[in-house]
């Protein structure tokens, strides 16, 4: 970033898109890996976790941005944590009210959203310096990027590990599920696979751009 980080950013497509691809919290920044590995054993859990995190990201982003001139610098981290914890608790109750089975499947990882560094990172690095609109758009982008990453993992793990997607069977009943994919090691394998795939794409793009530039220079 060449911009002076102290100045509020103007709202642009990039504000949203940042979290999706260029600074994707999972695939680029490798943040919040604890839920990424732990609750992606099926697509439904991944989606629920992604949505819960997105909700907390947006709400805490809005509140932090709203209070950014009021919160004294010395106690800002404590304040952010309280704000984040509040929304996490709300999500916790909401999920219990929606479905106990889902709540059981996600386990302690709902409460652990509090310590997800993506959220605190966004509050500190973005929301506390930008307007409410920017903060919420940026948080939405990050949230969607995080949910996308969780779904990438959850989808692959469920298809291989249980032969289904979102609970719908994909194959004949005689399909042999690869249980390793729903077990913890599978999380690491699938994450590594996606990281590999994305870095290959990125390298290819970079090489293509370079080639184009060279061709442009030559003509």
């Amino acid at each position: 970033m060449v911009n002076d980080p102290r100045l509020p950013e103007p709202l642009s497509w990039d504000t949203f898109q940042q979290g999706l691809w260029k600074e994707n919290p999972v695939f680029v920044m490798l943040l919040g890996l604890c839920p990424v590995l732990a609750v992606t054993n099926n697509a439904m859990n991944a989606l629920a976790m992604g949505l819960a995190t997105t909700f907390v990201l947006i709400c805490s982003g809005v509140l932090v941005s709203l209070l950014r001139k009021v919160i004294p610098k010395q106690v800002r981290i404590a304040s952010y944590i309280i704000i984040i914890a509040t929304f996490v608790t709300i999500v916790d109750y909401a999920i219990q009210a929606i479905s106990l089975d889902l709540y059981k499947a996600l386990g302690a990882f709902i409460q652990l959203i509090v310590v997800n560094c993506i959220i605190l990172g966004r509050a500190e690095a973005y929301a506390s310096k930008n307007t409410i609109v920017n903060a919420s758009v940026n948080a939405l982008g990050m949230g969607v990027g995080f949910t996308f990453a969780l779904l990438c993992l959850g989808g692959v793990r469920e298809v291989f590990g249980s032969g289904s997607l979102f609970g719908f069977s994909l194959f004949a009943p005689s399909f042999q599920p690869w249980s390793i994919f729903v077990l913890p090691p599978g999380g690491f394998f699938v994450l590594a696979f996606w990281l590999f795939l994305f870095s290959v794409i990125k390298e290819r793009r970079k090489a293509a751009a370079q080639l184009k530039q060279e061709a442009g220079n030559a003509s």
């Binding site: 209070l67 009021v70 919160i71 004294p72 106690v75 404590a78 304040s79 309280i82 704000i83 914890a85 509040t86 608790t89 709300i90 109750y93 909401a94």
Partner: peptide, 16 residues
């Protein structure tokens, strides 16, 4: 500042 934030949070949590 901290007290105000905590109280607002508490209120929201109780409400939820």
């Amino acid at each position: 500042a901290l007290t105000a934030i905590s109280m607002t949070s508490g209120l929201l949590v109780v409400l939820a």
